[in-house]
C-alpha cells in the first residue's frame, strides 16, 4: 500500500512539472503575443497536429519502419561480428579497427553520398539508421562475450562440450545484459539515423515533414513531428527494456523485503 503510494508520487512529480511547463508556455505565448511561426503555443501545436492526424499516421509509419529496419539489420550484422571478434584473434585484428574507423566517420557526412549511391527510397534511410545503430551493439556484445568467467569456460571444457554448445548455453546468455545495453543505445540512435536520412532527401517520414513544414513557416507542424519522434524513441526504448525484462528475468532487482 505504502509502496504503491510512493511509486504514484514518484511519477506524479515529473508529470506535474511537465504540465506546469506546458501551462507556462501557453500563457507566455498568448500573453507576449509571440508570432505563431516563431513559437506556437501548445494549443496551436495540438490543433495543427489534429488537423494533420491522417497524414501524420502515414509519415510516422514510414519513419518507424525505417528505424526498425535499420535496428533489425544492425542486430543481424552486429551479433555475428561480435562473435567473430571474440572467437578469432585474427578476425579481431582484421575487423575491429575497421569498425572503429567506420564509427569515426560522421554519419551525417556520409548520408548524402549514401543516398546518392543507394537512391532516395526508404531503403537508404534503413541503411543510415543501421550505420549509426550497429556500433554500440557490436562493442557491447563483444564485451559481454569476452566477459564470460574463465572458470565457466574451463568447466565447459572439462565436460568436453562443443564450442557451439558452450556458446549457446553459457557464453551468449552470459552476454545478454551487455547485448541489451547495446540495444538500448542503438534503438535511440536508429531513430536519429532514420531522420537524418530523411533530412538529406525524401518525400515521406517525420524528418521530411519537419523540413517541409519549416520551409513553409508551419512551425506548429514541425513541433508536432518532433514530439511524435520523441514518442517513437521513448516507446521503442521502453519496448527494448520490456523485452530485456522478459528475456532476462534474473536481472530484475531482487524484491525488496
Amino acid at each position: 500500500m505504502r509502496a504503491s503510494v510512493r511509486s504514484l508520487s514518484r511519477s506524479a512529480v515529473p508529470a506535474a512539472t511537465l504540465a506546469g511547463a506546458i501551462v507556462v508556455w501557453e500563457l507566455a505565448s498568448r500573453g507576449l503575443r509571440i508570432p505563431k511561426f516563431i513559437m506556437p503555443a501548445p494549443s496551436e501545436i495540438a490543433a495543427e497536429a489534429w488537423e494533420w492526424r491522417y497524414r501524420f499516421l502515414g509519415h510516422t509509419w514510414v519513419t518507424l519502419y525505417e528505424t526498425l529496419g535499420g535496428f533489425a539489420l544492425s542486430i543481424v550484422v552486429a551479433v555475428p561480428l561480435a562473435t567473430l571478434i571474440v572467437y578469432s584473434p585474427w578476425m579481431r585484428r582484421a575487423i575491429y579497427p575497421l569498425i572503429v574507423l567506420l564509427q569515426a566517420v560522421p554519419k551525417i557526412a556520409v548520408a548524402p553520398v549514401l543516398l546518392l549511391v543507394i537512391g532516395y527510397g526508404e531503403f537508404s534511410k534503413v541503411i543510415v539508421a543501421f550505420l549509426v545503430a550497429f556500433f554500440p551493439i557490436v562493442v557491447d556484445t563483444a564485451t559481454g562475450l569476452a566477459a564470460t568467467p574463465p572458470e565457466l569456460l574451463e568447466l565447459s571444457r572439462s565436460y568436453r562440450a562443443s564450442a557451439l554448445k558452450t556458446f549457446v548455453k553459457v557464453r551468449f546468455p552470459m552476454a545478454l545484459p551487455f547485448f541489451f545495453s547495446g540495444l538500448k543505445v542503438a534503438i535511440t540512435l536508429a531513430v536519429i539515423g532514420a531522420v537524418v536520412g530523411e533530412f538529406i532527401g525524401s518525400d515521406k517520414g517525420l524528418g521530411y515533414v519537419i523540413l517541409s513544414a519549416t520551409s513553409y513557416w508551419k512551425t506548429g507542424l514541425a513541433f508536432a513531428s518532433m514530439i511524435l519522434l520523441s514518442v517513437i524513441a521513448i516507446v521503442l526504448f521502453g519496448a527494448v527494456c520490456l523485452v530485456e525484462r522478459l528475456v532476462c528475468p534474473w536481472l530484475a532487482p531482487a524484491a525488496e523485503e
Binding site: 572458470e151 546468455p173 534474473w250
Partner: peptide, 11 residues
C-alpha cells in the same frame, strides 16, 4: 571441478 567462486548460471 569446484572453483573458488561458484560460477553458477544466474538464469
Amino acid at each position: 571441478i569446484v572453483f573458488q567462486h561458484p560460477v553458477l548460471l544466474p538464469w
